[in-house]
Protein backbone atom coordinates (compact mmCIF):
# COMPACT_ATOMS: atom_id res chain seq x y z
CA UNK A 1 0.00 0.00 0.00
CA UNK A 2 1.37 3.39 -1.00
CA UNK A 3 0.11 6.50 0.79
CA UNK A 4 0.69 10.07 -0.37
CA UNK A 5 0.28 12.77 2.26
CA UNK A 6 -0.05 16.49 1.67
CA UNK A 7 1.82 16.57 -1.61
CA UNK A 8 2.33 20.14 -2.85
CA UNK A 9 3.86 21.29 -6.08
CA UNK A 10 4.00 24.64 -7.81
CA UNK A 11 5.64 25.75 -11.03
CA UNK A 12 7.05 29.29 -11.04
CA UNK A 13 4.93 30.24 -8.04
CA UNK A 14 1.71 28.86 -9.57
CA UNK A 15 0.37 26.06 -7.36
CA UNK A 16 -0.50 22.93 -9.33
CA UNK A 17 -1.03 20.35 -6.61
CA UNK A 18 -2.38 21.44 -3.22
CA UNK A 19 -2.25 19.04 -0.27
CA UNK A 20 -2.87 15.94 -2.31
CA UNK A 21 -3.52 13.02 0.01
CA UNK A 22 -4.44 9.64 -1.40
CA UNK A 23 -3.94 5.93 -0.90
CA UNK A 24 -3.02 3.37 -3.51
CA UNK A 25 -4.36 0.10 -2.20
CA UNK A 26 -2.90 -3.29 -3.03
CA UNK A 27 -4.64 -5.12 -5.83
CA UNK A 28 -6.95 -2.20 -6.62
CA UNK A 29 -7.12 0.21 -9.51
CA UNK A 30 -7.06 3.91 -8.68
CA UNK A 31 -8.11 6.39 -11.34
CA UNK A 32 -6.70 9.90 -11.08
CA UNK A 33 -9.07 12.11 -13.06
CA UNK A 34 -9.68 15.75 -13.86
CA UNK A 35 -9.61 18.08 -16.86
CA UNK A 36 -6.34 18.72 -18.65
CA UNK A 37 -3.91 21.10 -17.01
CA UNK A 38 -4.88 20.41 -13.41
CA UNK A 39 -1.72 18.45 -12.62
CA UNK A 40 -2.73 14.80 -13.03
CA UNK A 41 0.39 13.97 -14.97
CA UNK A 42 2.50 16.01 -12.54
CA UNK A 43 1.18 13.82 -9.74
CA UNK A 44 2.11 10.68 -11.66
CA UNK A 45 5.57 12.13 -12.38
CA UNK A 46 6.05 12.82 -8.67
CA UNK A 47 5.14 9.23 -7.76
CA UNK A 48 7.53 7.89 -10.40
CA UNK A 49 10.32 10.26 -9.34
CA UNK A 50 10.54 12.29 -12.56
CA UNK A 51 9.42 15.40 -10.68
CA UNK A 52 10.24 16.47 -7.14
CA UNK A 53 7.35 17.52 -4.87
CA UNK A 54 7.85 20.80 -2.98
CA UNK A 55 6.54 19.18 0.19
CA UNK A 56 4.67 16.12 1.36
CA UNK A 57 5.48 12.52 2.21
CA UNK A 58 5.14 9.09 0.66
CA UNK A 59 4.63 6.03 2.80
CA UNK A 60 5.18 2.53 1.43
CA UNK A 61 3.69 -0.24 3.60
CA UNK A 62 3.82 1.94 6.69
CA UNK A 63 7.37 3.24 6.22
CA UNK A 64 8.30 6.68 4.89
CA UNK A 65 10.02 6.47 1.52
CA UNK A 66 10.99 8.54 -1.52
CA UNK A 67 10.29 8.09 -5.21
CA UNK A 68 14.00 7.48 -5.78
CA UNK A 69 14.11 4.73 -3.15
CA UNK A 70 11.01 3.11 -4.66
CA UNK A 71 12.64 3.18 -8.09
CA UNK A 72 15.76 1.45 -6.77
CA UNK A 73 13.56 -1.22 -5.19
CA UNK A 74 11.66 -1.64 -8.46
CA UNK A 75 8.31 -0.87 -6.88
CA UNK A 76 6.93 1.42 -9.58
CA UNK A 77 6.40 0.65 -13.28
CA UNK A 78 5.35 3.40 -15.69
CA UNK A 79 3.54 3.28 -19.04
CA UNK A 80 3.95 6.66 -20.73
CA UNK A 81 1.29 8.42 -22.76
CA UNK A 82 3.45 8.18 -25.89
CA UNK A 83 4.88 4.85 -24.72
CA UNK A 84 8.49 6.03 -25.25
CA UNK A 85 9.68 2.72 -26.66
CA UNK A 86 13.33 2.73 -27.70
CA UNK A 87 13.14 2.99 -31.53
CA UNK A 88 16.67 1.65 -32.03
CA UNK A 89 15.93 -1.63 -30.24
CA UNK A 90 13.74 -4.58 -31.21
CA UNK A 91 10.60 -5.34 -29.20
CA UNK A 92 12.46 -8.11 -27.41
CA UNK A 93 15.43 -5.90 -26.57
CA UNK A 94 13.14 -3.08 -25.42
CA UNK A 95 11.84 -5.48 -22.79
CA UNK A 96 15.10 -7.19 -21.78
CA UNK A 97 17.46 -4.18 -21.78
CA UNK A 98 16.75 -2.88 -18.28
CA UNK A 99 16.59 -6.32 -16.58
CA UNK A 100 19.91 -7.43 -18.12
CA UNK A 101 21.57 -4.13 -17.14
CA UNK A 102 20.39 -4.83 -13.61
CA UNK A 103 22.04 -8.22 -13.48
CA UNK A 104 19.39 -10.65 -14.73
CA UNK A 105 21.09 -13.06 -17.13
CA UNK A 106 20.12 -12.83 -20.78
CA UNK A 107 18.45 -16.25 -21.00
CA UNK A 108 16.27 -15.62 -18.01
CA UNK A 109 15.35 -12.14 -19.26
CA UNK A 110 14.49 -13.56 -22.70
CA UNK A 111 12.30 -16.24 -21.12
CA UNK A 112 10.43 -13.68 -19.00
CA UNK A 113 9.99 -11.40 -22.01
CA UNK A 114 8.64 -14.24 -24.16
CA UNK A 115 6.09 -15.11 -21.50
CA UNK A 116 4.95 -11.48 -21.30
CA UNK A 117 4.77 -11.21 -25.10
CA UNK A 118 2.60 -14.33 -25.22
CA UNK A 119 0.27 -12.98 -22.54
CA UNK A 120 -0.09 -9.69 -24.39
CA UNK A 121 -0.64 -11.28 -27.84
CA UNK A 122 2.66 -9.96 -29.20
CA UNK A 123 4.40 -13.25 -29.97
CA UNK A 124 4.80 -12.40 -33.67
CA UNK A 125 6.23 -8.95 -32.94
CA UNK A 126 9.21 -10.21 -30.96
CA UNK A 127 11.79 -9.24 -33.59
CA UNK A 128 9.95 -6.18 -34.91
CA UNK A 129 11.08 -2.59 -34.33
CA UNK A 130 8.71 -0.11 -32.69
CA UNK A 131 8.09 1.95 -35.86
CA UNK A 132 6.31 -1.00 -37.48
CA UNK A 133 3.83 -1.53 -34.63
CA UNK A 134 0.30 -0.19 -34.26
CA UNK A 135 -0.53 2.12 -31.36
CA UNK A 136 -2.15 -0.66 -29.38
CA UNK A 137 0.83 -2.95 -29.93
CA UNK A 138 3.24 -0.21 -28.85
CA UNK A 139 1.26 0.25 -25.67
CA UNK A 140 1.37 -3.47 -24.91
CA UNK A 141 5.14 -3.53 -25.50
CA UNK A 142 5.46 -0.58 -23.10
CA UNK A 143 3.43 -2.53 -20.54
CA UNK A 144 5.55 -5.65 -21.06
CA UNK A 145 8.70 -3.54 -20.65
CA UNK A 146 7.44 -2.18 -17.32
CA UNK A 147 6.23 -5.60 -16.12
CA UNK A 148 9.57 -7.25 -16.91
CA UNK A 149 10.98 -5.56 -13.79
CA UNK A 150 8.19 -7.03 -11.60
CA UNK A 151 6.81 -3.76 -10.23
CA UNK A 152 4.34 -3.71 -7.34
CA UNK A 153 2.41 -0.79 -8.81
CA UNK A 154 1.84 -0.04 -12.48
CA UNK A 155 1.17 3.60 -13.44
CA UNK A 156 -0.46 4.56 -16.75
CA UNK A 157 -0.38 8.12 -18.07
CA UNK A 158 -3.46 8.77 -20.25
CA UNK A 159 -3.55 5.20 -21.62
CA UNK A 160 -6.42 5.90 -24.04
CA UNK A 161 -5.40 9.24 -25.50
CA UNK A 162 -2.83 8.09 -28.07
CA UNK A 163 -5.05 5.28 -29.32
CA UNK A 164 -7.97 4.81 -31.67
CA UNK A 165 -11.17 5.45 -29.66
CA UNK A 166 -12.35 1.96 -30.56
CA UNK A 167 -9.45 0.51 -28.59
CA UNK A 168 -10.62 2.11 -25.36
CA UNK A 169 -12.57 -0.94 -24.31
CA UNK A 170 -9.63 -3.22 -25.06
CA UNK A 171 -7.43 -1.15 -22.75
CA UNK A 172 -10.07 -1.27 -20.02
CA UNK A 173 -10.33 -5.02 -20.44
CA UNK A 174 -6.55 -5.38 -20.19
CA UNK A 175 -6.36 -3.25 -17.03
CA UNK A 176 -9.14 -5.33 -15.48
CA UNK A 177 -7.34 -8.55 -16.41
CA UNK A 178 -4.21 -7.36 -14.64
CA UNK A 179 -6.34 -6.48 -11.63
CA UNK A 180 -7.79 -9.99 -11.62
CA UNK A 181 -4.23 -11.32 -11.41
CA UNK A 182 -3.56 -9.11 -8.37
CA UNK A 183 -1.79 -6.11 -9.89
CA UNK A 184 -2.01 -2.70 -8.21
CA UNK A 185 -2.64 -0.03 -10.82
CA UNK A 186 -2.96 3.73 -11.10
CA UNK A 187 -4.55 5.22 -14.21
CA UNK A 188 -4.25 8.91 -14.95
CA UNK A 189 -6.99 9.88 -17.40
CA UNK A 190 -9.28 12.69 -18.45
CA UNK A 191 -11.70 10.13 -19.89
CA UNK A 192 -14.42 9.68 -17.26
CA UNK A 193 -16.11 6.73 -19.00
CA UNK A 194 -12.82 4.90 -19.16
CA UNK A 195 -12.11 5.72 -15.51
CA UNK A 196 -15.52 4.32 -14.51
CA UNK A 197 -14.88 1.09 -16.36
CA UNK A 198 -11.60 0.33 -14.56
CA UNK A 199 -11.49 2.16 -11.23
CA UNK A 200 -12.18 0.86 -7.75
CA UNK A 201 -11.45 4.33 -6.43
CA UNK A 202 -11.36 7.68 -8.19
CA UNK A 203 -9.34 10.68 -7.15
CA UNK A 204 -10.29 14.06 -8.60
CA UNK A 205 -7.28 16.32 -8.96
CA UNK A 206 -8.22 19.96 -8.49
CA UNK A 207 -11.30 19.20 -6.38
CA UNK A 208 -9.10 17.57 -3.76
CA UNK A 209 -10.89 14.43 -2.83
CA UNK A 210 -12.00 10.86 -3.15
CA UNK A 211 -15.20 9.43 -4.44
CA UNK A 212 -16.58 6.25 -2.95
Amino acid sequence: MLELKNINKSFNGRPVLKNVTLTIEDGKTLAIVGPSGVGKTTLLRIISGLEQADSGTMIWNGKPTTAQAMRKQGIIGVVFQNFELFPNLSVMRNITLAPTLQGVDQQQADATAKKLLDQLALTDQEKAYPYSLSGGQKQRVAIARALALNPQILLYDEPTSALDPLLRENVAEMVNQFKASGMTQVVVTHDMDFAKSVADTTYHVGKGGDDQ
Binding site: G49, L50, R71, V78, F80, L85, A98, L101, A146, L149
Partner: peptide
Protein backbone atom coordinates in the same frame (compact mmCIF):
# COMPACT_ATOMS: atom_id res chain seq x y z
CA UNK B 1 15.74 9.63 -20.89
CA UNK B 2 12.67 9.53 -18.66
CA UNK B 3 11.68 6.06 -19.85
CA UNK B 4 15.24 4.89 -19.13
CA UNK B 5 15.12 6.53 -15.69
CA UNK B 6 11.89 4.86 -14.59
CA UNK B 7 13.37 1.54 -15.78
CA UNK B 8 16.07 2.20 -13.17
CA UNK B 9 18.84 2.68 -15.72
Amino acid sequence: FEASTVLNM
